[in-house]
Computed example of a mutant assay.
Amino acid sequence: MAVSSVLAAPGPHPGVGAGAPLWAVEAWRALAALLVLWAHWGAALGWPGTGPQGWLRFAFTGVDLFFVLSGFVFAPVLLQRPVPSLRAYGLRRVLRIYPAYLAALALYVALAWAAGRPLAHLPEHLLMAHLQSREMAFYYNPAFWSLPVEVGFYAVLPLLGAWLAQGRARAALSPRPWLPRWLLLGLLALSLRLTLLGLADGAQQNRAYVLLNHVPGLLVEFLLGAWVWQRAQRPLPRAAAWAWGLAGLTGLCALAALFVGLSATAPAWLGGQMGLGAALCFAALLLASLQLARPGGAVLAAARWGGRLSYSLYLLHMAWLAPALAWSERWGAAMGSALALAGLLASCLALHWCVEEPARRWGRSRAMRWERGGVAAPVA
């Protein structure tokens, strides 16, 4: 499935740590959203690299990058300390994801109604439980498919964090070494992925195929991001950082070439299973990028704003594809694409300022009061 997320993309968590170069994470979020945009717009508008032999057709793996980034951002909850308040945690996650999604869903429902399409699967989309079949997941907006995966990750994260914390406590008291629970969790996630892959039937969309596109099949991608966070807590020599970055970039290029070479003969669902390899490469690139010096001026501002608008862009870009096609037919692909991108940017800013950011700030403020016994704390 081509788009996640992140992204739905979640906001920075206070547990990431003051030393973490969050500007790099924001820049990767922006890139992930642009990859998703390129995957959905490129072929339709004739953009470079999206033809039958174009490597940029592999841009649909931007959703896998979103999953890796989510795992990185929430790694402290998983590997360091569980959430202090489930109520506060739940409120923050709901208000970070759902209000902007609901506003975007209302837009796509209105577009479907105006086009005379039946408003099918609406209850499932309202509950963000629409990843039950390809047709249901893609009905209003193909990019919506990854949001239930993010929500599923948020739901299991506190439980997994508590389980791992219990394992650390037991290991500290035990006189003999134990296999770390985080390693067991990674092996279990990988085993589930491979088992479901063997049982999945993309043509019939059987239960294994559906679970392959939920947390049981995609948890390993989140765990890759968590591993990057854990490794980044220790200094990484410059030579090692270059090696990780080169390995990640080489792997992505190889996967893109393989995807292009197989796309003519392999079944369509096989390309989606390259996402795990892409997630591994993105994890290597993310680890390498964390060693970069913080940029200044326009580069830093672009990284920050790209990250802030990544969720809005992810939600809204498909609404502007039809105008882009119409304007391209009238004025040419370059002018039509430019006008549609300008409209998309304006709508992303409106959604961010009017819905996403106010909901995020209110949720963070309320959650901090709950976590600190009713004492209000400043909003970062």
Rank of each mutant, 00 (worst) to 15 (best):
L126N: 01
H40E: 12
L262W: 15
A256W: 15
R330D: 10
G217F: 08
L212A: 13
R96A: 09
M136K: 01
P142R: 09
V77S: 12
R117C: 03
A342V: 13
Y89V: 07
M318D: 04
A303F: 13
L164F: 04
P158T: 03
A240D: 10
A293I: 14
L286I: 08
A169H: 13
L212M: 10
G306P: 02
A239K: 10
W38I: 03
L34N: 03
S146C: 14
A380F: 06
L255V: 05
Q291E: 14
V375I: 05
A380R: 12
W362S: 00
A155Y: 04
A172W: 09
V210D: 12
L292T: 07
V36R: 00
A239R: 15
A377C: 15
G202R: 09
G19E: 14
Y311W: 05
A283L: 12
S328Q: 04
L157W: 06
V220I: 08
G343H: 01
S289W: 12
A247I: 00
A367K: 11
L218S: 11
A20D: 06
Y311C: 01
L79G: 03
Y154V: 05
R308W: 00
F60L: 14
H125Y: 00
S328K: 01
G49A: 07
Y140V: 00
W47E: 05
G49N: 06
A203E: 15
W41C: 07
A288D: 02
V3F: 13
R29A: 02
G167R: 09
A165L: 14
Y108H: 10
W113L: 10
P216T: 10
L286Q: 08
